[in-house]
Design a protein around this nucleic acid. Sequence first.
DNA 1: CGTTGCGTTGAATAAGGTCAAATAGAGTGG
DNA 2: CCACTCTATTTGACCTTATTCAACGCAACG
Lengths: 249, 249
Amino acid sequence: MPSHLGLTPIDVNRLRTVCSKCSLRELCLPAGLDQRELEAVDRLVNRRRPVKRGDYLYRAGSELQSLYAIRVGFIKSCVLHEDGREQVAGFHMMGDLLGLDAISSNRHMCDAIALDDTEVCEIPFAVLEQFSHDIPSLQQHFHRIMSREIVRDHGVMLLLGSMRAEERLAAFLLNLSQRFAARGYSPSEFNLRMTREEIGSYLGLKLETISRVLSRFHDEGVIEVRSKLIRIVKMDVLRGLIGQHACQT
Amino acid sequence: MPSHLGLTPIDVNRLRTVCSKCSLRELCLPAGLDQRELEAVDRLVNRRRPVKRGDYLYRAGSELQSLYAIRVGFIKSCVLHEDGREQVAGFHMMGDLLGLDAISSNRHMCDAIALDDTEVCEIPFAVLEQFSHDIPSLQQHFHRIMSREIVRDHGVMLLLGSMRAEERLAAFLLNLSQRFAARGYSPSEFNLRMTREEIGSYLGLKLETISRVLSRFHDEGVIEVRSKLIRIVKMDVLRGLIGQHACQT
DNA sequence: CGTTGCGTTGAATAAGGTCAAATAGAGTGG
DNA sequence: CCACTCTATTTGACCTTATTCAACGCAACG
């Protein structure tokens, strides 16, 4: 535990940075909470929990205790099939809320693994249900977040079900770009935290295909790739790629 | 408001069959509601609404007014892409709750189209949020239902992302079988309400592929197909088909 | 009794997958 | 700091699978 470094009771305050002061507030919380409600939320969110790169935040099958909001870092969630097959169901970054799939059965239905050193805020689910009862706007917000997850999943289904490899990758890069932009980072230059294999798993393609398509984009001058570093050179071309080869159903 | 009955108190009762007496109750509602709560739920669910085969229950872009529970019939939901591409995101039958994807933005994000003459119960969403505030077990139930939808979508993503055609269709048939069984129908013999093209759209395959694979299953004696009527002859073989060709990732 | 929509089947084709080999990087221990 | 290892990535050649295109059958319906 690197946080307990000796005598000085110093940075407890910094460690226990509260939601009401968090820069990600507008990603996590509804707008228009009053002082009392903000304080309630501060009490709700238990503690920060660091997750080292490669470590599990939770495993499929484990009991639902808390939902997790990502503060910094990057997490993949993987759904599992009995036969050992596994697929990346999503890549999550700061401000994203994880664990929603566990509510139905009280057990996590997928693995959540840090792709990077990560810090999450732990939100005890029972307490969240309690609080969202007392704070209507929190309840609404929570419903919206769950619904947004459903919409997101539908988007992935559309991608997996009806796009060709090139389109999938273009959509993937544009999605990352947007999400980085929404968080104040460059929309055109970012580091992939995941391997080609993980991208492939997410997009329903093999890692070789990912590599090939990235190379092709590179050759066409649409993006620059240096291993994990991606720079989108022609955003509009990338956008144009989606829907190009639409099946004329 | 059909509940405020005028002169003839005739079949209002039949029309306005209440949740508390509905045979699908355990699919829609949490267990253990007391008398008062059941009455509240009866007030919550507005009215029955018939949707003829081929008609829209709602369209993408329309404002969220209500969620819909299917009483009888069959509905497909289709997600749309700007480029006109469209994909079936799910097939829904009695007891299923529709419209969850609209909560995030207050607008429906997909089309819902009846594949069969259908009757739905309309649940005004604003009232549902109100009631679920007053009835904790209803709130929990609603959360579980949303979460279950997320889990379901993850399952479809796994299917689309990592199964071959044969496996997809086997999984599809088994899923239908299970769901019919859960509703008291035969798990081994049922009518497909959707066309081959719709199945294909849902499974990320072309209609010809669906037809071919069905024929192959038929030739192998695993199922019997007479146009839309399916009889599963060897359930275990069908189960065994899934995971057979799993990629050794 | 033709029309229309749905389903089946075959042959050719293209898109990705598989296998294999070479290379590049990151992390580790001397 | 360098050599060494291990993993990730790239690339090529070949192969499998599903798509595409096209023809035909069948049933419902006016």
